[in-house]
């Protein structure tokens, strides 16, 4: 499946965000969906703390048949545009079949040190009730497809732990992950692939599971958060 790059172009007639890779092979509707959703939400990416920050964002682009999932690897760049604006991000997007995606998630989880995963499992286990209750008190998101927002103090090192938490949940590796959503094997209404974002600066219009820095959580109104710290 194709790999797409969404980049900020600083030269030529048409500047700014655009796909810089060949987009042939991706259906127009899927391309629009990827365009709108690949880059995590929120402002203040120009804050030096988030320069070089990485986010993994995954969402379904086609639910039919073998299914297609967009896997977006996003990085905060140090680019500066013609008028001095920063906070520019770059996304490399792979569109995967569902089976490939499952293998990708397992590999990504396996690449995280065992000690970090153990910490993540403990943190999630201790927050079972939070996970169960807070998703349903989210006033902003749909009650049928509730969103769960995680926070922690941001640092690149700490975010490996946060990424481990989200990967554990989306791989449905433990019983407690079913508190987010019972597996589609049991619940026919469950999402086949739970959308998630490992780092965004705003939870609105974000994935079903999203992690945001604690400093940005103060601005969320009506959205309960699960603190991982």
């Amino acid at each position: 499946m194709p790999t797409l790059t969404l980049d900020y172009v600083l030269e030529g007639r048409q500047r700014g965000y655009q796909f810089t890779s060949d987009t042939r092979g991706v259906a127009p509707d899927q391309l629009k969906l990827i365009w709108r959703n690949a880059i995590p939400r929120g402002s203040a990416w120009s804050d030096p703390a988030y320069r070089g920050a990485r986010s993994l964002k995954c969402f379904t682009v086609d639910d039919a048949g073998a299914g297609s999932i967009a896997v977006c690897d996003v990085i905060g760049t140090d680019q500066v545009d013609e008028v001095g604006r920063t906070g520019i991000r770059r996304a490399v997007i792979q569109v995967m079949r569902y089976a490939e995606y499952q293998a990708f998630l397992r590999e990504r989880l396996a690449a995280i040190p065992v000690a970090v995963i153990r910490d993540a499992e403990r943190a999630l286990y201790a927050r079972n009730w939070d996970l169960l209750l807070k998703k349903h008190s989210n006033a902003v998101h749909s009650p049928l497809k509730p969103q769960t927002v995680f926070t922690d103090d941001y640092s690149p090192e700490r975010w490996r732990f946060v990424e481990a938490c989200l990967l554990l949940l989306v791989t449905r590796a433990t019983v407690l992950t079913n508190l987010i959503e019972v597996t589609p094997k049991v619940n026919p209404f469950a999402d086949r692939a739970l959308s998630f974002t490992t780092l965004a600066l705003d939870a609105r219009e974000e994935s079903r599971l999203v992690a945001i820095p604690a400093a940005k959580a103060a601005g969320l109104r009506g959205i309960p958060v699960v603190n991982l710290g």
Binding site: L6, R36, R41, R85
Partner: peptide
């Protein structure tokens, strides 16, 4: 200090 608005925009 505005940032370039990313594809999809912000709510």
């Amino acid at each position: 200090a505005p940032e370039p608005t990313a594809p999809g925009g912000d709510s």
